[in-house]
Design a protein around this nucleic acid. Structure first.
Length: 286
DNA sequence: TGACAGGAAAATA
DNA sequence: TATTTTCCTGTC
């Protein structure tokens, strides 16, 4: 008898040096669908479900569903980035940044699925993180493909094929408001191959292609570029970054403008600067 | 219960 | 081209 994916599981161990934090990486706001349990985080990744746990310098990963390699997990969690030279370069560009980087020690930029990331950040427009999370989970539950782990059902994020066939009633359950027309247009007109096609293009070409999606503006485009398209110089500017760039670096102007200024200041790793700054702004003053 | 949070696109100057 | 207005749900 052929084994079904839902019956499979494989375990991986990864050694990390002191500059990787699973907690910060998963909870800093770059990814929405993360579930905290007593024995680690559950994170859906394509057709797999990862159970992740960090103990000091060891990452323990059990993948349920489609088997996954150590290399895929490392790529997903941004472990291949040369974080020491990235930090060095950012501090060299702006000495003022060293405290902010120190505070976010261990934080990495993940490499998520671009199709899922696009829908996630379409949902994020004028919405708070808990609301976005709930709507993405509801969408995944409605489509209903998932696996039971430790007695709880967890659902994969739907693929384009399933979302193309989503009925109107299900869409309405999401209460997307003015975002609904953008979501519907996206699932009707785009699929995973769109992202595969633009992945090898230049930064400017990728940005241009993303901006042609209805509802995707500069901020959302840069989130997609940074969190799922391997573009570490992307610099998404939301209200937090806009405030922070003004208060800490006296940078003012529209969000679009601040994106360009931020990229100019921080260079190739502006995306890391943005994530460290965002983490600092949202957590340090609590 | 009304003030507030949160980006894109259309409207306006 | 730059600024202002409109769109909608959810929380406190």
């Amino acid at each position: 008898m052929q084994k079904r994916y839902s019956d499979l599981q494989n375990s991986i161990q990864i050694s990390v040096s002191g500059n990787f934090s699973l907690q910060k990486t998963l909870l800093c706001g770059q990814i929405f669908r993360v579930f905290e349990t007593e024995n680690g985080f559950i994170v859906p990744l394509n057709r797999s479900l990862l159970k992740l746990l960090q103990e000091k310098d060891k990452i323990y990963c059990t993948a349920y569903g489609k088997p996954i390699s150590q290399a895929e997990v490392k790529n997903f969690l941004g472990m291949n980035d040369d974080i020491d030279s990235i930090k060095e370069e950012l501090i060299r560009k702006t000495a003022k940044f060293s405290q902010i980087i120190q505070y976010g020690k261990g934080l990495r930029i993940m490499r998520q699925n671009p199709y899922e990331t696009t829908i996630s950040f379409l949902f994020s427009i004028r919405n708070a993180i808990p609301v976005i999370r709930r709507k993405l989970n509801l969408l995944s539950e409605i489509v209903g493909e998932g696996i039971r782990v430790d007695g709880t059902m967890y659902y994969f994020f739907p693929e384009s094929e399933a979302l193309k066939n989503l009925d109107t009633q299900s869409v309405e359950k999401l209460h997307l408001g003015f975002r609904e027309k953008w979501f519907v247009d996206f699932v009707q007109n785009y699929d995973e191959t769109f992202f595969e096609c633009i992945l090898k293009k230049s930064f400017e070409e990728k940005e241009k292609n993303l901006l042609s999606i209805k509802g995707v503006g500069k901020k959302v485009a840069h989130c997609i570029l940074l969190f799922s398209m391997n573009e570490l110089s992307a610099f998404p500017v939301d209200v937090w970054i806009k405030r922070g760039m003004y208060e800490l670096f006296e940078v003012k102007g529209s969000s679009k403008k601040v994106t360009e200024i931020g990229r100019g200041i921080f260079g190739n790793y502006a995306g890391y600067a943005q994530e460290y700054l965002y983490y600092y702004l949202r957590n340090y003053f609590k």
